[in-house]
């Protein structure tokens, strides 16, 4: 599992660069590096489904983020001068890491899962659904309610984005206000 450690450390370095770089565009590119590292980690962890989805989703995230920053006057961010906030955050994160380290001791050792639910899926998934890809058989047959909820969340998010970005309503409001001003 040495390669997994290497990929994770590279991801952590990429995340630090993404957070600390002053140039926004470099920061977005570093985020893309973290996502591609995650893709390789999924491949090492034997999850090819997730690797495909993560790869294409990462590209789309990058395009959307670059679209948000291009053409706007935000090439470089200013450094935060408020040292109190930084100090408090670092203390909070250190406490969080200490607690999480203690909690992680009680988890099963890496590589030996103790979840018994999945045994049923692995044994009977092929017989009951006829799908060779067990992940698909879980998301679309055994646990289709999850997917229904996911579809609802996706629908709501897209609807929200369209509502936030709509143009017509704002134009109407402007013209009404202008008319009102003229009328007065």
């Amino acid at each position: 599992m040495l390669e997994l450690y290497i990929v994770l450390i590279l991801m952590i370095i990429g995340a630090i660069i993404a957070v600390e770089t002053k140039s926004i565009l470099s920061s977005i590119v570093a985020l893309g590096k973290v996502g591609l590292g995650l893709t390789i980690a999924f491949l090492i962890l034997k999850a090819p489904d997730l690797a495909i989805v993560q790869l294409v989703v990462e590209i789309l995230t990058l395009i959307i983020l670059i679209r948000a920053t291009l053409g706007r006057d935000v090439k470089y961010t200013k450094e935060n001068q408020n040292w109190g906030v930084k100090f408090l955050s670092i203390i909070l994160i250190i406490i969080f890491l200490i607690f999480s380290y203690n909690v992680l001791q009680s988890l099963p050792e890496f590589g030996n899962p103790i979840l018994k639910v999945a045994d049923y899926y692995i044994e009977n998934g092929m017989k009951e659904t006829g799908a060779a890809n067990l992940v698909t058989s879980v998301i679309l047959d055994f646990r289709a309610f999850d997917t229904l909820g996911e579809a609802t969340v996706l629908f709501t998010a897209i609807l929200g984005a369209l509502a936030v970005l709509r143009k017509n309503g704002i134009k109407d409001k402007d013209t009404k206000e202008n008319k009102g001003v003229q009328g007065d």
Binding site: L45, K46, A47, D49, L50, V53, Q54, V57, L60, T61, I64, L65, R67, A68, P113, L115, V117, A118, Y121, I122, G125, L134, V135, S137, V138, I139, R143, D146, T147, E150, V153, L154, A157, I158, G160, A161, V164, L165
Partner: peptide, 29 residues
């Protein structure tokens, strides 16, 4: 065989993450 249940849960989570990012970008714009 690797446990398929977390993979199925994460598969939906990735797409939701993309939609949430897009919504946040829309609000930021």
């Amino acid at each position: 065989i690797v446990d398929p249940l977390p993979q199925a849960v994460v598969l939906t989570s990735i797409v939701i993450g993309l939609a949430v990012t897009a919504l946040l970008v829309a609000i930021a714009i």
